[in-house]
Design a protein around this nucleic acid. Sequence first.
DNA 1: CCCCTCATTGGACTAAAGTCCAATATACAA
DNA 2: TTGTATATTGGACTTTAGTCCAATGAGGGG
Lengths: 209, 209
Amino acid sequence: MSGRLATAATVFLVDDDASVRKALTRLLRSAGYDVKAFASAREFLDNAQDEGPACLVLDIRMPGLSGIDLQRELQTANAILPIIFITGHGDIPTSVKAMKAGAVDFLPKPVKDHDLLTAIEQALARSARQRAERADLEDIQSRIDSLTPRERQVLEHVVVGQLNKQVAYDLGTVEKTIKVHRARVMGKMGVKSLAELVRLAERAGIGKI
Amino acid sequence: MSGRLATAATVFLVDDDASVRKALTRLLRSAGYDVKAFASAREFLDNAQDEGPACLVLDIRMPGLSGIDLQRELQTANAILPIIFITGHGDIPTSVKAMKAGAVDFLPKPVKDHDLLTAIEQALARSARQRAERADLEDIQSRIDSLTPRERQVLEHVVVGQLNKQVAYDLGTVEKTIKVHRARVMGKMGVKSLAELVRLAERAGIGKI
DNA sequence: CCCCTCATTGGACTAAAGTCCAATATACAA
DNA sequence: TTGTATATTGGACTTTAGTCCAATGAGGGG
């Protein structure tokens, strides 16, 4: 029913040079990717949809927003979209800045097909990994958000190893009450053991030193 | 009694150009760093000592081992020594390769003093962080290594949330025995709660999915 | 005013874990 | 052969944790 095949990863391509777009689109389509090409960063931002693992092949020098600008935009938007830069007249400081900002690769034009395809595989793998990690964390966070304030407090005390009686003392109540909260926390968080609870809390950044 | 002042971080400098060594040594000394300059990667490898937080300012193009070669050597030697590359005639692929391999920065000559000093501060901060992390992990690992094979097995089962009776069943023994092992594990690992034990195990990579 | 969520407790147990003191059995090193 | 380190169990409790059923009180929204 829906559009995308399960196997087709998306490669976004942003380059103001039509001939480059045409050539790379052809290359990437033949490699089996779902290619979406744009002539400018603006056009990309206005039209690209977030649908599954994807990466971005991005020209550095373009009219309007530059590739580096777009990289910054995506970063602040908290997007998961690994970038492979391609450039005709790049310099070292630009490449270094791009790599520092997390680019997967930075390839001089003319881009060698093999280099690009290798970089794309890496980028897509990174995308998949990061998306999975984010989905995991969001899932955990949503469970934490379902806790009442008191339950949340109990969680924080429990996952650092405090006994129910200690938690009760710290929160100014009695052990019995903590037991009830604690049971609800376990239920809402969907875990059956303290060990699992600690692991979830750890990943959510609760109880860190 | 001992040599190094607590406040003086070390900056290793490797460049085959004597005038560059002289100028940068002067700059870095005046910035308060303990500078150790070498004319070649070989000389550096044969003489440099690992003593506290440090970083390496490294020329790319040199006779014998190149800067990139040295970077690889240090990587395989598992050394913690963040690298700042400096180069007179570098190209983009080289800078990208260096950055991918974890370099802190890649500066074209002539290096601007401010750029270098900023990069060095970053590199030293990274060095300190990584050294602390490594020390932590080694400490945890040494405790794990002090466990007997059986205790280690019990640890693995306990930190994933299994009950003593379940662990006993899995290991073909009885709950009582597990309790004894478990108590010894807690003692050797230096923790007072299961939560702490789970956290240590997690950092040591035990019980991962 | 009524309903619902939250936070709190009690009572009464059951289950799990932790703690002492002891003791046995085995493999391996001195 | 004598230790020493490991692994294993028992017995006897004490603590902690977890589980039902029930109930009270404060605060908000309708």
